[in-house]
Design a protein around this nucleic acid. Sequence first.
DNA 1: GCCTCCATTTTTGCATTCATTTTTTGTCTT
DNA 2: AAGACAAAAAATGAATGCAAAAATGGAGGC
Lengths: 250, 250
Amino acid sequence: MKSAIPETGVPITPPTAGNANDRQEASLHGEVLLRLRDYVVEGNIPEGARVPERQLCEMLGISRTPLREALKVLAAEGLIELLPNRGARVRQLSQRDLEELFDVMAGLESLAGRLACELITDEEIAAIERLHYEMYGHYLHRDMHGYFQINQQIHESIVAAARNETLKTTYANFAGRIRRVRYSANFARKRQRWGEAMREHEAILDALRRRAASELSDILFQHLRNKRSAAIDHLAEGQDTNLETTPQGD
Amino acid sequence: MKSAIPETGVPITPPTAGNANDRQEASLHGEVLLRLRDYVVEGNIPEGARVPERQLCEMLGISRTPLREALKVLAAEGLIELLPNRGARVRQLSQRDLEELFDVMAGLESLAGRLACELITDEEIAAIERLHYEMYGHYLHRDMHGYFQINQQIHESIVAAARNETLKTTYANFAGRIRRVRYSANFARKRQRWGEAMREHEAILDALRRRAASELSDILFQHLRNKRSAAIDHLAEGQDTNLETTPQGD
DNA sequence: GCCTCCATTTTTGCATTCATTTTTTGTCTT
DNA sequence: AAGACAAAAAATGAATGCAAAAATGGAGGC
């Protein structure tokens, strides 16, 4: 009997604080859902590994009923898969799955940009500009981590500017699914592609200033498509980092 | 004690045929999920109505455990909402919710068109052309029902041509959420708008033939945006429109 | 007559229990 | 020793039981 989950043995915190991250903060199964989702998204369970309910139960300090409810939801979200009578597994994402997910993300951000052009305020644009220049600073200092953090903030700002909660939620869902890979992809960002990504961000900002919806939509899609290529290439070639030849980035 | 659900009293069919509409066809809770989803999507439960678990249980002929699992999933899908300690309600969609949903649908179809341009075959385009002319026939005969049916087939063909299962699933999810309203929206489409829609479909087909991804993306978004306007206007002007009793379509 | 407060009933949330399926393990045969 | 079969163990799927919260209803007070 091999344990798929590292024996952290951290019981769930009693219903103390309502960590209102998503929904259903109060109920036990809601808390379990949040914790389990984070647990899976953060990659604490190996891909494709079997996850015995009993083990998760004692890890979280609950009975099987709320756990199974949470598992059903996570399966609906696409994070895990439930094989009939054979338990839950962390969903293994094939290369094709990743391509699809990145494309949908690209479509959602493309949509966000289009919608943002309709109602975004000058102040919001100014805020994004500030982020942009901050990011540029990180770029000049070759501070990849800082760059990535601001980069994500910019993309989230655009999604927020779309003023569409449904879109925001959906976007967050997909972001969670590929978060693990996203990190690898970001670490794969290399010099040359980095410059390209900066130029694309310039174009994004420019289109946003002019409220050019269709144009921004196109640019964002292409920008994310390039991200996709970087991520897929990175995964395809394995763990070794090829510095010169791979077109990776942002 | 008022019963929110019409007393159909139809017990769930024993695990006979695997109606593999979505996922989890075999297990009882999977069957329940499919049945409940259809039941809600088809509008058998009034919006915002309280749904006692016990009642659903005896309606489906099961115990509360699988039912509650299905409810959690439906809540995650956005079809119902679960208030802590206060049961499940059919999610009431505000006008703003509908606008958001339509916009996301528009974004997804826009993405589908963009992706379709990359790999769509001449045969697939020819099939869509045939559907187009068939739809045109319905238009000339003022056969609204036939028109909508083919119209839906065309949009689904475009989504299929995108060759992205993730997108397809997500699209189906959102389509389910607004199906109820969608039908009213179609009836709201008046003569003049009908002609517009036909012209837009001509443009869609034209862009598709030329594999003009960005252009098709724009046209599809606008096309769906116009649909949205029709739906929202219709709902705004007719508050007496009983959504529960309207049949399903488009 | 209407409102308030409290007891009763119902309903929800979770734990536990039971039945079925899968997986493991041990033994026997070739 | 390797494979096949069978029994045991464990895990899953679903039903039931129990405590807590909410809804209901009625008596009493204003």
